[in-house]
Amino acid sequence: MSAREPKVVFERVSKTFPKKKEVLQVLQDIDLSVAEGEFVCLLGPSGCGKSTLLNIAGGFEEPTSGTVRIDGQLVDGPNARRVFVFQEYGIFPWASVWDNVVLGVRHRPRSEQHEIAQGVIDLVGLTGFEKAYPMELSGGMKQRVEVARALAVSPDVIYMDEPFGALDSLTRLTMRAELIRIWNTRKPTVLFVTHDVDEAIQIAERIVVFSARPGRVAGVVDVPLEHPRDLSSHAYADIKRELYGLLGVVQAV
């Protein structure tokens, strides 16, 4: 893992929001380095600032202090080299699946657009739904469109903000397996925000655990398990115990 080049580097990133008379510290001194092609989960309770950190990395928000660099370049705004997969559906409901997917490659020649779009649509398993409109699709399929739209631009980094949060638990399992399959095909760098401990262990290579507000890195846990992962193995249970410990949550109910 250490052989890989650092792709995304967070340096002492802090974020505060003004709130009436006081200031709300959301993130405090986040230092984090994500390698090229790595799949990293940001895990933490609601309101710990993990989504804010993602928005800062995406260029949608500015850090109060500190920097985010991608390939050594300072992030200073949104860019199609690093794309978001949103939780609430960010795909456009007024456009067909095809038109949504070609959004990021709309300036390329037609034949190239066609090749790219068909490639990613096939990859996410939506072949035959090119002309469908999002309202005709299930929640899981909409999220596949969103993933296809992101993959179409061959981004350096994909940010996923609880992308499966709105799906039912069975669809969520399928989508995780699909995401891993797709990630193995293209190997993009992925930063994946979740508050679901199991989700993090199932998909991530490395898990960054956040403390409650103000968000700080409480610990980093490697997941050295091969896919497909056995969810009932001892190693899985050990990692889970470690994560709950870092989160300060009692595991037994």
Binding site: P78, N79, V83, F84, F86, Y89, G90, W94, L103, G104
Partner: peptide, 25 residues
């Protein structure tokens, strides 16, 4: 906000922003 951000993320701006996002939305 998600649609505005989607547009920003994929570099849709100016007149294209009106045609592709603002008007249809």
């Amino acid at each position: 906000l998600v649609h505005r951000r989607s547009a920003l993320n994929f570099g849709v701006q100016g007149l294209e922003l009106f045609r592709r996002v603002v008007l249809p939305a």
